[in-house]
Amino acid sequence: MSALLEVAGIDLFYGDAQALAGVSLDIAAGEIVAMVGANGAGKSSLIRTIHGIERPARGTIRFDGADIAGWPSHRVCELGIGHVAEGRQVFPNLSVLENLEMGAAPRRARALERQTLERVFALFPRLAERRRQAAGTLSGGEQQMLAIGRCLMGQPRLIMFDEPSLGLAPAIVQEVFRIVRRLNEEGMTVLLVEQNVTASLRIAHRGYVLENGRIELSGGSAELLNDDRVRQAYLGL
């Protein structure tokens, strides 16, 4: 199966500090691929590099055959890569509806804005109920739903989730992962970046373990969950 996203040999530096070293991964259309690792391992740096927020020193990033390494974020978004950022980053003073409408800014999404909005409200009924409410007054879980909905408004082909469970209550975490799985079942390709190793690998098809900016392990999700190194380092077993 050919890769929808293929990252090869990416190096990223912040000044003299190397954040990513020779990172390579691939994601086929229709997959959930988990990128797991401890805080500070470089997971968010990888997502930011794919999305054009950071510029790699070396390496290639191919999406549907096009090398997008170093492209600005707006071009990456137009191509069909969505990004649900760590910390949700909603516009607090705008309403739920206004936040969602901001997500439909890409040209490729504008023609389908009304239909996509109906889909988002069907997926997240609480957002429909609170459409006129300021986003900053929502609960953490509701803000995460809004961040996901805003990303969907852009008509992405691939969604990258950066720590979607961070700071959420356990019951809400389960709901977020259920939503990720449902989106995938509906055809969405997903890169899931998470510290919650167990939860992310349980819904992913494959996974990578990132440590100190390097890929140390990769394989099927069940294989990684049963790997002694993963169990000892991340699961406390």
Rank of each mutant, 00 (worst) to 15 (best):
4 L>R: 03
4 L>V: 11
8 A>T: 13
10 I>P: 00
10 I>L: 03
12 L>A: 00
15 G>C: 08
18 Q>D: 09
19 A>K: 05
19 A>M: 02
20 L>M: 10
21 A>I: 11
22 G>R: 02
22 G>M: 08
26 D>A: 15
27 I>N: 01
29 A>K: 15
29 A>C: 08
30 G>M: 09
31 E>I: 00
32 I>T: 05
35 M>C: 15
39 N>L: 00
39 N>C: 01
40 G>K: 06
42 G>K: 01
44 S>M: 02
45 S>A: 12
53 I>V: 15
57 A>G: 07
60 T>C: 04
61 I>C: 03
62 R>I: 04
63 F>K: 10
67 D>K: 03
68 I>Y: 00
69 A>M: 04
73 S>H: 06
73 S>N: 13
74 H>E: 14
74 H>W: 14
77 C>T: 15
82 G>S: 10
83 H>W: 12
89 Q>C: 03
90 V>S: 08
93 N>C: 00
94 L>F: 12
97 L>A: 15
104 A>W: 06
107 R>W: 05
109 A>Y: 11
111 A>F: 04
111 A>Q: 15
115 Q>M: 11
116 T>G: 01
119 R>A: 15
122 A>V: 11
122 A>S: 15
125 P>N: 11
126 R>S: 12
126 R>T: 12
127 L>V: 12
128 A>T: 01
134 A>M: 14
138 L>G: 10
143 Q>M: 10
144 Q>Y: 11
147 A>G: 13
149 G>W: 01
150 R>T: 12
151 C>G: 14
153 M>H: 13
157 R>I: 08
158 L>F: 07
161 F>V: 06
161 F>I: 04
161 F>W: 10
163 E>Q: 08
164 P>A: 06
164 P>I: 04
169 A>M: 01
169 A>T: 01
169 A>R: 01
171 A>Q: 13
177 F>C: 05
177 F>I: 02
178 R>K: 14
179 I>A: 06
182 R>C: 05
182 R>F: 08
183 L>R: 05
183 L>N: 07
183 L>C: 10
185 E>F: 08
185 E>W: 04
185 E>Y: 07
190 V>L: 05
194 E>R: 10
196 N>K: 13
202 R>D: 14
204 A>C: 10
204 A>S: 15
206 R>M: 06
207 G>Y: 00
214 R>M: 09
214 R>L: 10
215 I>C: 07
218 S>I: 00
218 S>H: 13
224 L>I: 05
226 N>K: 12
227 D>Y: 03
228 D>R: 15
230 V>M: 07
236 G>L: 07
